Amino acid sequence: MAQDGHPAEDYLSPRLESLIADGVKAGFARNVVIAVLIDLLDDGPADDAEVR
């Protein structure tokens, strides 16, 4: 499924869907997998800033 000229989204979208599907196959609810991914992305830069 091509997006509107966003190559990064075109590249990442199928990989994220696959990661979410793997989490669901492992027994986690889809919304939980997505929430954890969002949390990981939210916390990433803050953690990096604290190390510096």
Rank of each mutant, 00 (worst) to 15 (best):
M1R: 05
M1P: 15
Q3F: 15
Q3D: 14
D4V: 07
D4C: 02
D4Q: 04
G5P: 11
G5I: 08
H6Y: 08
H6C: 07
H6G: 01
P7K: 00
P7Y: 02
P7L: 01
A8R: 00
A8C: 04
A8D: 10
A8K: 00
E9K: 00
E9N: 03
D10H: 09
D10F: 13
Y11T: 11
Y11G: 02
Y11H: 12
Y11V: 11
L12E: 10
L12R: 07
S13F: 12
S13H: 08
S13P: 04
P14R: 00
P14C: 03
R15Q: 05
L16S: 03
S18C: 04
S18D: 12
S18N: 08
L19R: 00
L19A: 06
L19E: 05
I20Q: 00
I20F: 06
I20D: 01
I20Y: 04
A21N: 11
D22C: 06
D22H: 08
D22F: 10
G23E: 05
V24F: 09
V24K: 01
V24P: 09
V24C: 06
K25Y: 08
K25F: 11
K25H: 06
A26V: 01
A26G: 00
G27T: 09
G27I: 10
G27W: 08
G27C: 05
F28M: 04
F28S: 02
F28H: 03
A29V: 09
A29M: 05
A29C: 02
R30E: 12
N31Y: 05
V32S: 00
V32M: 00
V32C: 00
V32Y: 03
V32A: 00
V33I: 13
V33Q: 02
V33G: 03
V33W: 07
I34L: 09
I34V: 14
I34H: 03
I34R: 02
I34M: 05
I34N: 02
A35K: 06
A35L: 08
A35I: 10
A35R: 09
V36R: 01
V36K: 01
V36C: 06
L37V: 15
L37N: 07
L37R: 03
L37E: 07
L37K: 04
I38P: 06
I38A: 05
D39Y: 12
D39Q: 10
D39N: 12
L40V: 14
L40I: 13
L40G: 13
L41Y: 13
L41Q: 08
L41H: 08
L41N: 06
D42G: 01
D42E: 11
D42I: 13
D43H: 04
D43W: 04
D43Q: 03
D43A: 07
D43N: 07
G44L: 11
P45L: 12
P45Y: 12
P45T: 12
P45H: 10
A46K: 14
A46T: 15
A46C: 10
A46L: 15
A46R: 13
D47R: 11
D47K: 12
D48Y: 07
D48S: 02
D48C: 05
A49G: 02
A49E: 11
A49L: 11
E50A: 13
E50Q: 11
E50S: 12
V51K: 04
V51T: 11
R52I: 15
R52W: 15
R52V: 15
R52E: 15
R52H: 15
